[in-house]
């Protein structure tokens, strides 16, 4: 936390951060750590989102922050060789990031991620094994944090979040569908530089998830004046269409997406609460047209 009279200009903040990191690097206080990025029952949306990261970007994370030891999607090795690499990490210290939910049905057979010693290796087995040994566990995305889309009704695979497999462990939760690359890379950087970030009662890092979207929304004055959009594309408050900004906590309004290009409300479409626990079922319906005006054939 930096407060006046310290200078708060962008240049001075950047200089302060760079100096702090350089100092720690030269004193060997920061070391690259192993990262295992496990993909379970999900859509790989979070890792695709991760590739879109900036400052740091994915290449920087790969080269300078972590030893990327295992990733279902991105690693060169495949088949048994890939699983062997995962097993080798178990003897070392590593940070575990999990994307996707854990399918519990039929002992996890609804989500098989490879085979080990001639038997199918389920996501449930992998996350149980790795989660016990990991120094930190990051649940990345809606499915890993609370089941998300994978656990949406009727949830045929009986999917759950990581916490239910490891009820005793602290799981840092990064909800979002997908997670903004800034939330994942920022949390990872915090782990490397300062240790665990401060989290709220739902284990979300406060630096990204502390503020209601509604409280920082550039369209808040329209809400306060009761000026509501009636259809997508209207440049006013999207509350009557079903905007979930008032119940969702992220930094989307200020930091936005795709390298600060835009965000849903900036594109005249309501927030669907993708970073809220219980998404998508609890956030449905995503859009309603019958609240502001009379629909003739109800």
């Amino acid at each position: 936390m930096v407060l006046p009279p310290d200078s708060l200009t962008n240049a001075s903040v950047a200089a302060r951060l760079t100096n702090a990191v350089n100092e720690k690097l030269t004193n060997n206080l920061i070391q690259k750590q192993n990262l295992v990025y496990l993909e379970l029952n999900g859509c790989s949306g979070n890792i695709i989102s991760l590739l879109n990261g900036e400052n740091p970007d994915f290449a920087y994370a790969l080269n300078s922050m972590v030893n990327f030891r295992y990733s279902n999607s991105l690693m060169v090795a495949e088949g048994t060789e890939a699983i062997e690499q995962m097993m080798n990490v178990l003897d070392e210290d590593f940070i575990l990031a999990v994307e996707g939910a854990v399918a519990l049905k039929n002992n996890g057979l609804y989500n098989v991620i490879g085979s080990y010693q001639g038997k199918p290796l389920t996501g449930l087995q992998a996350v149980s094994m790795l989660g016990e040994k990991a120094t930190h566990i990051l649940a990345v995305g809606a499915c890993a944090t609370h089941g998300g889309v994978s656990a949406a009704k009727p949830n045929p695979s009986e999917s759950v979040g990581i916490q239910q497999v490891h009820p005793q462990r602290k799981v840092i939760k990064l909800p979002g569908c997908p997670v903004n690359p800034r939330w994942f890379l920022g949390t990872l950087a915090h782990l490397l530089l300062y240790g665990e970030p401060q989290t709220d009662h739902l284990d979300r890092p406060l630096m990204f998830y502390s503020t209601l979207i509604h409280d920082r929304c550039p369209r808040r004055p329209f809400f306060d004046q009761g000026i509501f959009a009636e259809k997508l594309g209207d440049p006013t408050c999207l509350f009557k269409l079903g905007c979930r900004g008032p119940v969702t906590r992220t930094d989307c309004p200020t930091k936005q997406w795709n390298g600060h290009v835009n965000w849903p409300i900036g594109n005249d479409t309501p927030c669907i609460g993708c970073s809220q626990f219980g998404f998508p079922d609890a956030m449905a319906p995503f859009i309603s047209y019958d609240t502001t005006r009379v629909v003739k054939d109800e």
Binding site: G226, L241, C243, P246, A284
Partner: peptide, 13 residues
């Protein structure tokens, strides 16, 4: 009707 947590007259399902 105009409570922010009840957008489109729904609240967490």
């Amino acid at each position: 009707t105009n409570d922010s947590a009840w957008a489109a007259a729904t609240h967490f399902g």
